[in-house]
């Protein structure tokens, strides 16, 4: 469904991504894990069209999307939940969700119901300003906002960043739930333990390269991974 071949990206004057290739199968949860500065976020930003690739190709549903602008990539069905949530603080929760559906011209009421049923908390607070929500609620809003574009594949950049462990668990159970409803998920995480538990397939990135790959359940038992990322 989604495939990256020999992708190189320069970002901020350095070669942030060097020759990576990986693929995502439809309906699966795929995770990229790795330390700070490994190039995970840059990879997601490149797929979303926010950063231009130096070379390599990105294909989605058999179509080349390398070099397309962010709007047309969202239109094709790939939406990014940015790192650090980045909700719109001075818009209400409802307005935030409507922005997620900005490119759509059809009826959004059904999707709004769906998002509210996934996150009942957002429905209670639909008239509140985004900036007044707690960290966990903001993350829910960021995910809900992305779902409003009715994506085929949703990319999440560190959804557990800065959240309490209990809330992180909530977020991950929601990720699984969204996946069950048929949305493919590409997840970038530093919280390798949680990410590997939910992922069907995992790739480990180090300084711009993919150094290891395998099923999530396999990598969780891998000695090197344990030493480097799981603190065991």
């Amino acid at each position: 469904m989604f495939e990256i071949k020999n992708l190189f990206v320069n970002y901020g004057g350095i070669e942030a991504v060097r020759d990576i290739s990986f693929s995502v199968e439809e309906g699966k949860i795929v995770t990229l894990i790795g330390a700070n500065g490994a190039g995970k976020s840059t990879t997601l930003r490149t797929i979303a069209g926010l950063v231009k690739a130096k070379s390599g190709t990105i294909e989605f549903m058999g179509e080349k999307i390398t070099g397309k602008d962010p709007a047309s990539i969202v239109g094709k069905g790939i939406t990014l939940v940015p790192e650090g949530r980045k909700i719109f603080p001075d818009l209400t929760v409802l307005e935030n969700l409507k922005i997620g559906a900005y490119l759509r011209s059809d009826d959004i009421s059904k999707d709004l119901e769906w998002v509210y049923s996934l996150f009942p908390r957002l429905k209670e607070r639909s008239w509140q300003y985004g900036g007044t929500l707690s960290g966990g609620e903001q993350q829910m809003l960021a995910v809900g906002r992305a779902l409003m574009s009715r994506p085929k594949m949703i990319m999440m950049d560190e959804p557990s960043l800065g959240l309490a462990p209990l809330i992180v668990r909530d977020i991950f159970s929601i990720i699984k739930e969204i996946n069950k409803e048929g949305v493919t998920i590409l997840l970038v995480e530093q919280n390798a333990n949680m990410a590997l538990q939910v992922a069907d397939m995992a790739y480990v990135m180090e300084t711009g390269r993919i150094t290891l790959s395998g099923k999530g359940s396999e990598l969780i038992d891998n000695e090197d991974i344990k030493k480097a990322y799981l603190g065991k």
């Binding site: 962010p70 969202v74 939406t79 719109f88 818009l91 992305a146």
Partner: peptide
């Protein structure tokens, strides 16, 4: 209108607005 909402989204966070498909 929805354009006004897009303007406000750009004001609040350009990167997020762009990621939502706002040109």
């Amino acid at each position: 209108s929805s354009y006004g909402r897009a303007f406000k989204a750009i004001r609040d966070d350009e990167v997020a607005a762009e990621a939502m498909g706002i040109n």
